[in-house]
Simulated assay, not measured.
Amino acid sequence: MRTGAKVGIGVGAAVVVVGAAAAIWGPGLYADRANSVAADAPALEQPAAALPDADAVAGTWTIGEGSFAGYRVEEVLQGNDVTVTGRTEDVSGSVTVADGAISAATVEVDVASVATDEPPRDVYFRDQAMEVGDFPTATFELTEPAPLEEGATAVELTGTLTIHGVSQPATVEAEIAGDATSGEPVQVVGSVPITFADFDVEAPDLGFVTVEDDGSIEFSLQLEQ
């Protein structure tokens, strides 16, 4: 059995960088700066659109340009709360609608391309925490059909989330925007709460910086047919 990899999503091998910056600016100013560059949570670019009859959108939809995925975690730096986000646009996969429901869906994320505002943090995240040489991707795969209710603006997706080579059941509450019958992309956004230990990843406590045990995976997908 592998030992838990210590995730430095907020610190890791970048301890020296974070510590030096905090010492120069002061923890409060460093926290303010870090929070100012954290990405906003994914949001619909237009108001949620009611789903038409599922038969009207039957077929396979692919994840297209403009999609992204990433993570959000919280740190505590000497008593100051810090939000850290990582993002990548290297997302692929497809969604199939049949018999009045989403019958299949697969989303794959290139973990090695996830980036924050701190390159040293990203190096640690890729090489030591997530071990991308062995586990280059994270995936979500639907395991149960998700009925599409006519007039609904959201859908619940039940599936398997695989991160760092570990698979766990996950439920995603997703919002939808766009006219699915217009030929234009349909946007789907959502997030999945995770506990690092469930994926054999240990959030460190380094004294002056503590990473919370929980975080979330966030996504915004542009689906094209």
Rank of each mutant, 00 (worst) to 15 (best):
T3N: 14
A5W: 01
I9Q: 02
G12F: 01
A13L: 13
A20H: 11
I24E: 03
G26W: 10
P27V: 13
G28V: 06
D32P: 08
A34W: 10
V37R: 04
Q46L: 05
L51S: 13
A56G: 05
G59Y: 14
T62W: 00
E65F: 03
V73K: 02
V73Y: 00
E74P: 10
L77C: 05
Q78D: 15
E89Q: 11
S92V: 14
A98H: 02
A98R: 02
A104W: 04
A105K: 00
V107S: 07
D110C: 05
V111A: 14
V111C: 04
A112N: 01
V114L: 14
D117V: 11
E118N: 15
D122F: 03
Y124R: 00
M130S: 09
G133W: 04
E141D: 10
A146Y: 06
P147D: 01
A152L: 09
T153G: 08
L157D: 09
T160L: 09
L161K: 01
L161Q: 00
T162Y: 10
T162N: 06
I163M: 09
H164G: 11
G165C: 14
S167P: 00
S167W: 01
E173A: 15
I176T: 01
S182V: 09
Q187D: 02
V192F: 12
P193L: 13
A197S: 09
E202D: 05
E202R: 09
V209P: 13
V209A: 08
V211K: 06
E212A: 12
E212F: 12
I217Q: 02
F219Y: 14
S220M: 09
L221R: 05
E224V: 15
